[in-house]
């Protein structure tokens, strides 16, 4: 509608009559000016794009790619460091455990040895006391035996004297008692 009403106003279109009202895209008279403007404007576009815009966008993209690469590398570095720290920590833990183990073993061995030595000492002391006691018992026994002999002799001499009225000689009595005991 608006174009309809615009048409009569478009009296600027004096060339329209000159053009003979053909199909506008095939109207060769407009070609030169279209080509001229196209050349000018496209050249300007090409120069601005190739000199300024595209290098700028390219550098923005490159900078971002580089930044991401750097950040990833740094993250990897931190991860490696933490891995190393964990490994060191675990190694220290294992070492400490091993040390504790040997320490315990040593202590146990020492304690066992000490106990053994003490046992031996006590043992020896006890044995000595046993021998002493046995010696005392043997002494007492031989003393008792000797007493038995003298008592038996005296009793035999008294019996003989009572029966015969004659006191026997001590040696004879002793001889006889010895014989009797031996039997």
């Amino acid at each position: 509608m608006a174009q309809n009403s615009a048409e009569p106003v478009g009296s600027v279109e004096v060339p329209a009559s000159e053009h003979g009202r053909g199909f506008p895209p095939f109207n060769t008279e407009t070609f030169v000016s279209q080509l001229l403007w196209l050349a000018l404007i496209f050249l300007a576009l090409y120069l601005l794009m190739s000199r300024i815009a595209l290098p700028r966008v390219g550098s923005i993209l490159e900078a971002r790619r580089q930044r991401i690469k750097d950040d990833l590398a740094e993250a990897q570095r931190f991860k490696d460091a933490s891995d190393a720290a964990i490994a060191a920590h675990e190694k220290a833990l294992a070492e400490a455990r091993a040390r504790a183990q040997t320490l315990a073993n040593e202590t146990r061995a020492k304690a066992t040895a000490a106990a053994e030595a003490r046992r031996k000492e006590v043992d020896a002391k006890l044995r000595a006391r046993i021998t002493e006691a046995e010696k005392a018992i043997a002494g007492t026994r031989s003393a008792a035996l000797a007493n038995v002999r003298s008592i038996a002799g005296e009793a035999a001499a008294a019996i003989v004297e009572r029966l015969t009225g004659i006191a026997p000689a001590t040696e004879e009595v002793g001889q006889a008692v010895s014989n009797a005991i031996k039997r």
């Binding site: 060339p15 008279e29 407009t30 030169v32 000016s33 279209q34 001229l36 403007w37 196209l38 404007i41 496209f42 300007a44 576009l45």
Partner: peptide, 17 residues
């Protein structure tokens, strides 16, 4: 014989630019 003018075609090329 050719008139070189600032046309509507040129105007829209400039707008695109």
């Amino acid at each position: 014989g050719t008139e070189i003018a600032f046309t509507n075609s040129a105007l829209f090329m400039l707008i695109a630019l």
